[in-house]
């Protein structure tokens, strides 16, 4: 935590003022984090894989629309991988390599956006329910419990069915179904922060509820939120793949899940067109694995007691 080791001595702190002390302390803790992360091999491996996929997603903006248009491609369908078609072709003769590169955009976008939403809901609910005990906290805690127990995929399916199929809706569906775990975690951390003396002091000085939550609780739960975010992105990407595979994604967008749906519907299995199904799946596995590796590395660094590796 940021409070444990103070690298600034008290006399210079007085001269600098409270804000600068906090800034310097946070900078020092960021530096400590970067140094430790550089020494974590699996974390670096995850980061490398992720950067490659982000580069691919950016590069995919330069793919001409005609090469992904089923009416304009000329290659035969279900061609196995060759020099000309490194990952083969799909059921309408499009290059699977280009499809998969294009799919990286939507899969990563939905993964990040849904995670943002989920983290926002989870952190807000967690802090508020931990800060206001009594009725508000009790109700929020109950609601968290409900969403924690309800099976995830059936809930996502009914929500997606009711909302209809679009890019925004799939982000909303994943966001509003995946927050309760975060809320649980953040609530526990908020409870422990609220019990610390400096919050007592802040209350005694007349700080309002909003000030306490925003200025004191939030900065303290933030490292936990960030560590949890990387793990949450992997869940979001897996969810997007599953929902798109079931036909609940945006029908006009190409994502790894929708390529799998298209391949399954076009009979890639009975055709033995393994490249058509293997390529998007391997991308999902590598990306999810990358986020899991980064998340575990972050957890190890932030909380050395709980060693996972």
């Amino acid at each position: 935590m940021t409070m444990t080791q103070q690298s600034i001595n008290e006399s210079s702190a007085a001269a600098l003022g409270a804000r600068d002390v906090v800034k310097a302390r946070r900078k020092a803790s960021r530096q400590r984090f970067t140094t430790s992360f550089r020494q974590n091999k699996s974390g670096l491996l995850g980061l490398t894989i992720l950067l490659v996929f982000i580069a691919v997603a950016i590069g995919a903006f330069f793919i001409p629309a005609s090469s992904l248009d089923v009416t304009q491609v000329t290659a035969d369908p279900f061609l196995p991988p060759s020099l000309q078609w490194p990952l083969g072709t799909d059921d309408s003769g499009r290059s699977v390599l280009l499809l998969v590169a294009k799919g990286a955009q939507i899969s990563l976008l939905v993964g990040f956006a849904a995670t943002m939403l989920s983290m926002f809901i989870g952190t807000t609910v967690g802090i508020v329910s931990g800060h206001y005990r009594g009725l508000t906290g009790g109700v929020l805690d109950r609601v968290t419990d409900w969403f924690l127990v309800i099976p995830y995929l059936p809930l996502a399916i009914v929500l997606a069915t009711v909302l209809g199929r679009s890019l925004l809706n799939i982000i909303v569906v994943i966001g509003v179904t995946s927050w309760p775990g975060t809320a649980r975690l953040i609530r526990a951390q908020t409870l422990s922060v609220t019990a610390r003396p400096y919050l007592e002091r802040s209350k005694a000085l007349g700080a309002g509820n909003l000030h306490q939550m925003w200025k004191h609780v939030l900065p303290n739960v933030m490292p936990l939120v960030l560590a949890n975010t990387t793990l949450a992105v992997s869940i979001s990407i897996l969810s997007e793949t599953t929902l798109s595979f079931l036909g609940l994604g945006d029908p006009t967008a190409i994502s790894w899940g929708s390529i799998l749906e298209q391949g399954f519907a076009a009979g890639a299995i009975s055709q033995g067109a393994w490249w058509f199904l293997a390529a998007p799946g391997v991308c999902v596995v590598l990306t999810v694995l990358a986020f899991n590796l980064i998340g575990r590395a972050t957890e190890d660094i932030l909380d050395p007691r709980q060693e996972t590796a």
């Binding site: 897996l238 793949t241 599953t242 595979f245 799998l260 799946g281 999902v284 999810v288 694995l289 899991n292």
Partner: peptide, 14 residues
Amino acid sequence: YSMPEFWFGMIMLI
């Protein structure tokens, strides 16, 4: 753990 289970199923099938 990082694998969509249905994808693993399709690969097994193929």
